[in-house]
Design a protein around this nucleic acid. Structure first.
Lengths: 205, 205
DNA sequence: AAAATACTTGACTAAACAGTCAACAACCAC
DNA sequence: GTGGTTGTTGACTGTTTAGTCAAGTATTTT
C-alpha cells in the first residue's frame, strides 16, 4: 500500500520555482533536490529525468491557474473587464514572485519555451497547448465585446494574437529590465490594442 | 607585429549563431570552437570566458544591424512605411535563419536576455542598451507620423513600448510554435496598434 | 506478526564541461 | 637571418552534472 509522501509535490514546486527564477539549463537536478528537501534517489524514483519533471510542472501550473483564468474570462464578466482583471492577475503573480526572488521573473512559459523549445519537443508541445488555451480566452472576450458594440469586431483572431504577443513581450521586457512598469501598463495597452473607446473602459485599478 | 587571423571573428560568428539557434546554456565552449574551426587554446587567448564572448557577439550584432536600422528608420522615410520596412527586415532575417537551421529562431536578444538576464549583469545591461535604441527608433517614427496627421499622437512613448513588446512577443511565439505566421502579421499588427487608418497604410508587401 | 508496496538514501559511475598551460608556429620589423 | 609579437595547440586538471543502484525504512494490508 502506498506510503504517504510529499516528495513528489515538493519536487514539482521546487522545479517550477527554480526554472522560473533562473532558467531551465541553469537549474540542475541537485538544485531541485536541495530546494525540495529530498535526495536524488527520490527524484529518480518519481521522475525519469529533469525534462519529465518539467512536464509535470507545466501540468501543475495549468491545474493551478486555469480555474482562476476561467473566473477572470468567465462569460458572466463584462468582456473588457476580463482584460483588466487579467492584467491584475498577471501583476499579482509578478509582484509575488518579485518579493520572493528579488527580481522580476516574467512569463515562465515564454522563457521556458524560448530556451528549450528547439531541443525538447514534448516540452514545446505542452507549452503550445497552454498558449492555445490562452488564445481562446482572449478571442472569446473579444467576440463578446464586439457583440456588445464595445469594440470593432473585425479580425478577432488577429487581435487575440496581438494581445497574446504583446502580453508576452511585455513580460519578457519586465524580466530583462527587472522592472514591473510594462506590467503596470498592461491593462491600458491591451484596451488600446482592442480599440476600446476610453469612456467604455472599466475602471483601471 | 600582429599575425593575421580570422579566429576571433569566427568565434564571434559561431557563438552568435549557436546561442541564437539553441540557447546560451546549451551552447558549450567546445561547441563554439567546433563551429568556429579553432581549438580551445585559441578561444581563451581571445576571450576570458563564454560570457565575454557573448558580449562581443552583442557588439558585433549591433555593428551589423544598426546601419540597416538607421536606413529603415531614417527620417527621410515616410513614418508609417518605416514600420512596414522594419517588418520586412525582421521577416528577412527570420527566413534566412530558418533556412539555415530548420526552425524559427525568434529574437536573439530577447531569448538571451530572458535566459541569462538574472544571472549575468553585464549581458543584461548590454541587451537593455540595445532595447533602448530600438525604442527610440519607434518613438521617433511615431512622433513623425503624428506630426503628419497620420495617427493620433497621444502617448507616443507608451505606443512605442506597445510596439516593442508586441514585436518581441510575436518573435517569441514564432520561435516556440516554429511558425513564421506571427512575423507575417507583424506589419499589419503594428499599424493597427498605432491606430493608422487603413487608407493611410503604405502597401503591405 | 508477517508480507507487500512504496519511499528514501548517498556513494558511486561516467560523461560533460570550463579553463590552464608549456611548447610550437607564423608573421613582420629590423 | 634574427628577434619580437601574436596566434595556435590539445592533453590535462578539476568541477559539475545526470543518472544508477543495492540496501534500508516506513506504511499499509493480510
Amino acid at each position: 500500500m502506498a506510503r504517504p509522501s510529499q516528495a513528489k509535490e515538493n519536487l514539482i514546486k521546487a522545479a517550477y520555482d527554480l526554472i522560473w527564477e533562473t532558467s531551465y539549463g541553469a537549474t540542475s537536478v541537485d538544485d531541485i533536490c536541495a530546494r525540495a528537501g529530498v535526495r536524488k534517489g527520490s527524484f529518480y524514483h518519481f521522475f525519469e529525468s529533469k525534462a519529465h519533471l518539467t512536464i509535470a510542472t507545466l501540468d501543475a501550473g495549468r491545474a493551478k491557474h486555469f480555474p482562476e483564468l476561467n473566473e477572470i474570462f468567465s462569460p458572466l464578466v463584462p468582456p473588457l473587464e476580463r482584460f483588466v482583471r487579467f492584467a491584475g492577475y498577471v501583476l499579482f503573480y509578478q509582484q509575488e514572485r518579485l518579493a520572493l526572488t528579488g527580481h522580476v521573473c516574467g512569463c515562465a512559459l515564454s522563457s521556458l519555451g524560448s530556451e528549450v523549445g528547439s531541443m525538447d519537443e514534448l516540452i514545446r508541445t505542452h507549452i503550445i497547448d497552454i498558449f492555445s488555451s490562452h488564445l481562446r480566452y482572449y478571442e472569446s472576450a473579444i467576440r463578446d465585446a464586439a457583440r456588445e458594440g464595445l469594440i470593432d469586431g473585425t479580425d478577432a483572431p488577429l487581435k487575440a494574437k496581438m494581445i497574446q504577443h504583446y502580453v508576452q513581450g511585455a513580460l519578457t521586457h519586465a524580466r530583462v529590465l527587472n522592472d514591473l512598469t510594462p506590467v503596470h501598463d498592461m491593462a491600458r495597452s491591451m484596451l488600446h490594442i482592442l480599440g476600446a473607446k476610453p469612456d467604455l473602459i472599466p475602471a483601471l485599478s
